[in-house]
């Protein structure tokens, strides 16, 4: 049995997440991955923005930085640039990272700065009460889309790949062991690494979309999350309504803080 207590701030429990929320499953997968890699807690910094997912760092016994809405990646870029030896993990959500923080998201990926980003995608603004987000599916209901959402959603992983991220994976909280592996790989990768985690929000999303029962939402995840291998063998018809999980992109590109360190070595005059 893995000793989660080694890594959490027990005094801050119980957590604020609703029953049936997937955020705790991501937290546990992250802690197992961190433990496997033997990351020093003093040298780890978790940075988040605003939203349900962004409360994650508060429960983890490392250096934690809970910033403003959408800006986690900007703060994290400052932390990592100033002290590149620190392991910087960013926790964010679909609204935080791709609506208000969309600009920082694409530029952090483009810069290929060595951050590991866990993006909890629950298709909704949970903390503020169920408003439409950039990943709310077309036709789904939200408190600000009472007649069904008119807008097409972002493909977050696709966006990160297009922007230049060196590692992009998608996982889900039903397949928790696999999620742990993906987070582990992301943490090991030098460069901008994203793990998009599909996770249910029964309270704000499920309730409005005929999935108020958390079990039903988990079953839905089980039925719609498809491994890369299986995805390849599926027809277009079979793929409808489903999504791929696994490593979607893993390439070698120059990492920003290493490039800067090289520049400093070249131009230094203070020695």
């Amino acid at each position: 049995m893995f000793d989660y207590l080694k890594y959490v701030r027990e005094e801050n429990f119980p957590h604020i997440w609703c029953s049936g929320c997937g955020d705790g499953i991501v937290l546990k997968a992250l802690l197992r991955a961190v433990d496997k890699l033997g990351i020093d807690r003093d040298e780890a910094v978790m940075v988040s923005g605003i939203g349900c997912s962004s409360r994650t760092p508060g429960y983890v016994d490392v250096n934690t930085l809970h910033t403003t809405h959408g800006r986690a990646l900007a703060f994290a870029t400052g932390v990592k640039s100033a002290k590149p030896h620190l392991t910087v993990i960013v926790v964010t959500g679909d609204g935080d990272a791709t609506a208000i923080g969309g600009n920082h998201f694409i530029h952090a990926a483009r810069r290929n700065i060595d951050l590991t980003v866990l993006l909890y995608n629950n298709y909704i603004y949970g903390m503020t009460g169920g408003q439409c987000s950039p990943t709310t599916p077309r036709g789904a209901r939200a408190s600000t889309a009472p007649f069904g959402n008119l807008e097409p959603p972002f493909n977050i992983s696709g966006l990160a790949i297009a922007a230049g991220a060196s590692f992009v994976a998608r996982g889900d909280v039903y397949n928790a062991k696999k999620l742990e592996t993906l987070i582990l790989k992301a943490l090991q990768k030098k460069g901008f690494s994203l793990v998009e985690v599909v996770t249910p929000c029964p309270t704000a999303y499920g309730r409005r979309n005929r999935m108020a029962n958390p079990v039903k939402m988990m079953e839905h995840l089980r039925d719609t999350a498809v491994s890369m291998e299986k995805w390849e063998s599926m027809s277009g018809e079979e793929r409808a309504g489903k999504f791929r999980t696994g490593v979607l992109c893993d390439v070698e590109r120059p990492e920003y803080t290493e490039e800067y360190a090289r520049l400093v070595e070249e131009v230094r005059t203070d020695r």
């Binding site: 900007a74 870029t77 400052g78 100033a82 620190l86 920082h104 530029h107």
Partner: peptide, 19 residues
């Protein structure tokens, strides 16, 4: 570092200072 916007520049400044 030249950031992507003014907001990010302020955020990065704070992040760096915390180290």
């Amino acid at each position: 570092i030249q950031m992507e916007d003014e907001i990010a520049a302020m955020g990065a400044t704070i992040g760096a200072s915390l180290t």
